[in-house]
Design a protein around this nucleic acid. Sequence first.
DNA 1: ATTCAACTCATTCTTTCGGGTGATTTTCGC
DNA 2: GCGAAAATCACCCGAAAGAATGAGTTGAAT
Lengths: 156, 156
Amino acid sequence: MTQKLTKIQFLLLYGLALGSLLLLSLMAWSNYRFMVIDHATELYLLLIAGVFVSVGIWVGLRWSAPTIIEKMVLVPMPTSAVSPEPNQQVLEHLGISPRELAVLVQLSKGLSNDEIAGQLFVSTNTVKTHLANLYTKLDVKRRTQGVEKARVLGLV
Amino acid sequence: MTQKLTKIQFLLLYGLALGSLLLLSLMAWSNYRFMVIDHATELYLLLIAGVFVSVGIWVGLRWSAPTIIEKMVLVPMPTSAVSPEPNQQVLEHLGISPRELAVLVQLSKGLSNDEIAGQLFVSTNTVKTHLANLYTKLDVKRRTQGVEKARVLGLV
DNA sequence: ATTCAACTCATTCTTTCGGGTGATTTTCGC
DNA sequence: GCGAAAATCACCCGAAAGAATGAGTTGAAT
C-alpha cells in the first residue's frame, strides 16, 4: 500500500474512470434519464471538463518533464566566470546520463527518493536504480557524499 | 513515430477502448434504440473529450515551458565568493551549540552517523540526538537538506 | 545550593536508503 | 530491421536514519 500504483494499474483505472465519466455525461447530456437527475447537467459538464483538463495537464507534464533536464544539459553554460566548463567534460568522463543528472540535481536539493520520483514522474524504484548507478560512477557510498561530490565537480 | 505503438500508447488506447466498450454495453443494455436515433452524440462527446485533453496538454506544456528557462538560469550559478563570517550571527540566531556545529561540520562531509560518532568520540545515539536538534533548528526534514541549508547559511 | 543549559546515552519504533538481481521498454544509431 | 545503451520498474533484504521518549551527567551562573 505504501507502494504507488503501477503504470498498468493506473491506466486500467483510468480507462474505467473514463468510461464511467463518459457514461455519466452521456446520460446527463441526453434526455434519457433513468438514473440521473436531469437538472444537474451543467455540474456534470463542469466535472467532465475539469477531469479531462487535469488528465491533459498531467499527460503534458509527464511527457515534457524529461525534456527539461536534457535541454539543461544540451544548452551551453553561459557562465564561464568561475566555473569554466566542468559540466560536459565531467559528465562525459564519468558517463553520467541526462536522466541520472536529473536525479542528481534533485538529490542535491535534499529531496527524498519519493519526492524525486514525484518530480521526475517515475517510480521510486527507478530513482533508486539511477542513484545506485550514480553512486558507482561518483565513487561514493552515501547520498550526502554524492551531494558533496556533485557540488565540487560543478555538476549542480 | 509512425511505426508501431509503444506499450504506453497501446495501454492508453486500451483504456479508452475499454471505457468505450463499457459505455456502449451499458447504453445498449439500458436503451438499445439510442444507437439508432442519435449516434452522433457519442461522436460529439468523443470530440469534446479530445478537445479537452488537447487543451490540457497545451496548458501542461505552457506551464512546463517557463520551468525550463527558470532552471536554466538557476543551474549555472556556481559557488561564488562566500561571506567571510556570517557564522556567529546565524549560529546565535538559530541557537546552535558548539557541539551541534561540530556534528554539522562532519555531516557536511558526507559522513555517516557512526563515522561522526567516531570522529567526535561519542556514541551514535548522541549524534542522532544532536542531529535531531539540528534538524529542528535548521527547519529541515532530512540530512541532505541540512547539508544544503548549512551550506547556504555559511555554517560550513 | 540550586537552577539551568548543554551534553550525553539509551530504548523503541517507523521510515527511508541502499545493494543486488532480473526484467521489460524505449531510444537511437547503423 | 537490429543491436546497444538508456530508461523504467519490480522484488527482496539488510542497514541506516529518524522520531519520540526518558534520563543521567557536567559546568557554570545566580
